[in-house]
Amino acid sequence: MSKELLEIRDLYVNAGEKQILQGINLKINKGEIHVIMGPNGSGKTTTANAILNNPEYKKEKGQILFEGENITNSKTDEIARKGIFMSFQLPEEIPGISVTNFLKYAKNKVTGKPVKIFEFKEELKKYMEELSMNSKNMERSLNVGFSGGEKKKNEILQMLVLNPKLAILDETDSGLDVDAIRTVSKGIEMFKNENNAILIITHNTKILHSLKVDYVHVLVNGKIVTTGSQELAKDIEENGYSKYKK
């Protein structure tokens, strides 16, 4: 079995008229944690959205392969069912659909198997406890009236329940206090195993303190300008991006 999960080949992506990504190349293998860092506007969120094929972003050139299969133009829901998950920077609010019902439905779609309600609720409860979430949130409408921190934890909860092969975490740490960041890191630790992979997208380095990452990529003006180990993140934390901006 190949260890390779995701491969991005020479990807160019536009948002509206604006060219954002200008030739991205990236390989992610099972068991790895990758980080994409970069200043605001460098194309980090665009990268995440392009992998999930958000129709708001137009691919001009390049390919995305997942487990060797070309998913460049696959529909978002098909990509999700193949095993890619994205934690949103700004999760949407869905009134009238409870967290439980939503996740049960999504899990059924992703696994293609019926979900046993009792077992499922127990699993949900366990994860919510681990993530220090109020179990009353289970019956609340999805993300409606949730605080910023609750929304982010709810994304991590979804990741744990849906158990994808590749989890993309888009700015999951932004706007969180120290305790919430610790909880989110704990969720990531719980999820991580040698058969899956994580792509963390962030513009700061706080979340990296409690996680062991394999690769750090620096994205500037739609290109990966350098790739390194965890040391690279430390360097950026101290010195910023200025030396990578031309």
């Binding site: 978002t76 829901d77 999700a80 009238g96 659909i97 939503f102 409408s141 849906l162």
Partner: peptide, 29 residues
């Protein structure tokens, strides 16, 4: 909103089902 549909689709839910889910949630009260 297209953003809401994208969010639901990123969880493996088809576009049709996503819309239906939003409408059902709207009517739920």
């Amino acid at each position: 909103s297209d953003k809401t549909i994208f969010y639901l689709m990123s969880r493996g839910i088809s576009e049709e089902d996503a819309k239906a889910m939003i409408v059902r949630g709207f009517a739920y009260p």
